[in-house]
Write a protein that binds this DNA or RNA. Structure first.
Lengths: 128, 128
DNA sequence: CTGAATCCTTACTGATACTG
DNA sequence: CAGTATCAGTAAGGATTCAG
């Protein structure tokens, strides 16, 4: 369960970092959350529900999630095209730990904000 | 408990995004995890345990964590200087949800890797 | 509607060099 | 030892344009 790797293997990252680095970007969590609460949704719906995501980033995020097996993409050959996205069982299984994280954030947000305000760049003197 | 905000308020981001975006960068989780498993540690120790972090990034990450109240920095006015870092109670409280996330990653890493390999860029045809 | 491709601007990062 | 400052390269992100 270590997140560290010896200096030797930069290339083959530790499993956990490998997975978490994907999830840590700006939009992934948001997309997963939106899919979870809204169920199967079209591209345009997702775009509408995440106001500040660009088309480019949404597409890219969805591609990666699809690639990692957290999301399924279903395209219908109609005109105009219709594409639907949904969480896979794997994607759904991720929502549990994610909800914990969201809960923590909601719970402690105020405390963090307070800490930020109280923060003083540096202290010259020191204990001892 | 929504992660979305109306288009109106980009500036004042939703609490959860505000908190999670900080944690989502490349080093924060790793630093927190290292502090958690090793207890109070000096700058150089942390640097040694996270082989591929640069001095600059480690310092920056620690500053932010300190600012957010997850880490305490204690400087001793000795020569040479000695600075110790430790998790605050707030920081410790974050480890719970974080461990869940790490656990999920460890548990499903193989599945994700498999999905990545099986992935085919796009499909021309489609159902229906 | 759902994207991919391009361009361009900003943010992140690592090396390096320099202080207290 | 524990940083900060500066610089340069890379990567991320948005806006726009074009295509199936």
């Amino acid at each position: 369960m270590t997140l560290h790797k010896s200096t030797a293997d930069f290339a083959e990252l530790c499993p956990i970092r490998d997975v978490l680095e994907r999830l840590g970007d700006r939009w992934t969590m948001l997309v997963l959350f939106t899919l979870d609460e809204g169920g199967t949704q079209r591209f345009s719906t997702l775009k509408a529900r995440i106001p500040d995501v660009s088309q480019r980033m949404l597409a890219q995020t969805l591609r990666r999630l699809e690639q990692d097996g957290l999301v399924v993409r279903t395209a219908y050959a109609t005109v105009p095209p219709r594409v639907e996205y949904a969480l896979t069982p794997l994607g759904t299984s991720f929502m549990d730990p994610m909800r914990q994280l969201v809960h923590w954030a909601a719970q402690h947000h105020e405390q963090v904000r307070t800490a930020r305000q109280a923060y003083r760049p540096v202290q010259a003197a020191a204990p001892l």
